[in-house]
Computed example of a mutant assay.
Amino acid sequence: MILVGLNLRPALSSLAPVLARIQADLGLSAAAVGALTTMPVLCLGLFAPLAPWLSRRLGIERTLSLALLLLALALWLRASHSVGLLFLGTALAGAAIGISGTVLPVLVKRELPRGADLMTGVYTMALCLGGALGAGLSIPLADWLGGWDASLASWSLLAAAALLGWRIMMPHPWPGRVSRPQDRPGRGLLASPLAWQVTLLMGSQSSLAYIAFGWLPTLLQRRNVGEAEAGLLLAVSVFVQLFSALAAPWLARLGRDQRPMLLLLLSLVGVGFYCLLQGPPMLRWPGVIALGLGQGGSFSLALTLLVLRSANPVIAGQLSGMTQGIGYCVAALGPLAVGLLLEFEASMTQVWLLLTLVVVAAMLLALLAGRNRCLDLDAQGRFITRRSD
Rank of each mutant, 00 (worst) to 15 (best):
Trp148Val: 01
Val288Glu: 08
Gly255Asp: 10
Gly134Arg: 06
Gly381Glu: 12
Gly292Ala: 07
Leu265Met: 08
Thr120Ala: 07
Arg373Trp: 10
Leu133His: 05
Leu200Thr: 06
Ser82Phe: 11
Met170His: 14
Arg57Trp: 11
Ser151Arg: 05
Arg373Gly: 00
Met169Ala: 15
Pro113Val: 05
Phe87Leu: 06
Leu54Cys: 14
Asp25Gly: 07
Gly89Thr: 06
Trp76Ser: 10
Leu68Trp: 09
Asp376Ile: 01
Leu306Lys: 00
Gly279Met: 02
Leu8Asp: 01
Val351Gly: 02
Ser244Trp: 03
Ala369Arg: 00
Asn312Ala: 05
Met169Glu: 14
Leu36Asn: 07
Trp53Cys: 02
Arg222Ser: 07
Ile139Trp: 08
Gln350Val: 13
Val338His: 04
Leu342Thr: 04
Gln350Leu: 12
Ser347Asp: 10
Leu92Ser: 09
Leu246Glu: 02
Gly59Gln: 06
Ala20Gln: 13
Ala32Cys: 06
Pro281Thr: 04
Ala31Met: 12
Leu254Arg: 15
Gly176Ser: 15
Met39Phe: 13
Thr323Lys: 02
Leu112Thr: 09
Ser29Ile: 09
Ala30Ser: 14
Val4Gln: 04
Ala302Ile: 01
Ser179Asp: 08
Leu42Tyr: 06
Glu345Ala: 14
Gly296Asp: 05
Cys128Asn: 13
Arg387Thr: 12
Ala362Leu: 07
Thr385Cys: 07
Gly370Phe: 00
Leu340Glu: 11
Gln182Phe: 11
Ala247Cys: 11
Val240Leu: 06
Met125Arg: 05
Leu194Val: 00
Leu333Phe: 11
Leu246Asp: 01
Asp257Pro: 00
Leu283Cys: 06
Met119Tyr: 14
Ala116Lys: 09
Arg187Lys: 15
Val41Ile: 14
Gly292Asp: 07
Ala24Pro: 04
Ala290Phe: 11
Gln205Ser: 04
Ala160Tyr: 09
Ala191Phe: 11
Pro335His: 08
Ala332Gly: 14
Gly27Thr: 10
Leu377Asp: 02
Asp183Gly: 09
Thr37Trp: 03
Gly136Glu: 10
Trp174Pro: 06
Ala135Leu: 08
Gly136Trp: 04
Glu227Tyr: 08
Leu164Cys: 14
Thr199Pro: 02
Trp196Cys: 04
Trp155Arg: 08
Leu242Tyr: 03
Leu12Gly: 04
Leu64Gly: 13
Thr120Ser: 11
Gln23His: 04
Arg371Tyr: 00
Leu333Tyr: 05
Gly294Asn: 10
Glu227Ala: 15
Ala331Met: 10
Ala20Phe: 12
Glu345Asp: 15
Ala230Gln: 03
Ile22Ser: 02
Asn372His: 13
Val122Met: 13
Pro217Val: 09
Leu92Thr: 07
Val359Asp: 09
Ser300Lys: 04
Arg21Gln: 15
Gly203Cys: 10
Leu50Val: 12
Met202Lys: 02
